[in-house]
Amino acid sequence: MLDASSGRVGAQRYAIISPRAQIEIKQMMPVWVPGRPRRKKDTEDITRPEAALREQDTSPA
């Protein structure tokens, strides 16, 4: 899940969650936590990175 690069805020280093992992977490949360409704924000949080990844995959190198 933490397969992307690491980041830094000041002297503190942090693992960065890859966009694909973030999408999977948002998609699976209603399965993992039954009864938790999918919010409009969750749908938007999935749509934007998916679109960016598609654009990145189709852009010339």
Rank of each mutant, 00 (worst) to 15 (best):
P30L: 06
D57Y: 02
V9F: 11
T43V: 11
I17R: 01
P34H: 07
M28R: 13
A4S: 14
M1C: 15
A52F: 11
G7L: 04
R20H: 08
R39V: 03
K41Q: 15
A61S: 15
I16G: 01
E55P: 06
L53M: 10
R48Q: 15
A4Y: 07
R38W: 01
A21Y: 02
S18D: 02
P30R: 03
G7N: 02
R13Q: 09
M29D: 12
S5K: 06
T47Y: 12
V9A: 12
R39L: 11
T47L: 12
R20V: 08
G7T: 01
K40S: 12
K41C: 14
I17M: 07
G10F: 07
A11N: 11
D3A: 11
M28E: 15
S18I: 01
G35W: 00
T58R: 02
A61R: 11
E24Q: 08
E55V: 08
P30T: 00
R20K: 14
V31H: 14
I23D: 05
D57L: 02
Q56E: 14
I23P: 00
Y14W: 14
G7R: 09
E24W: 00
E55C: 13
E24P: 00
D57F: 08
R48N: 15
A21E: 02
S6N: 03
Q27D: 08
Q27T: 01
Y14E: 06
A52E: 10
D42Q: 09
R20P: 03
L53S: 04
K41H: 14
Q22V: 05
V33Q: 14
V33R: 11
A11H: 06
E50R: 03
I17Y: 01
P30G: 06
T47S: 12
M29Q: 11
V31G: 09
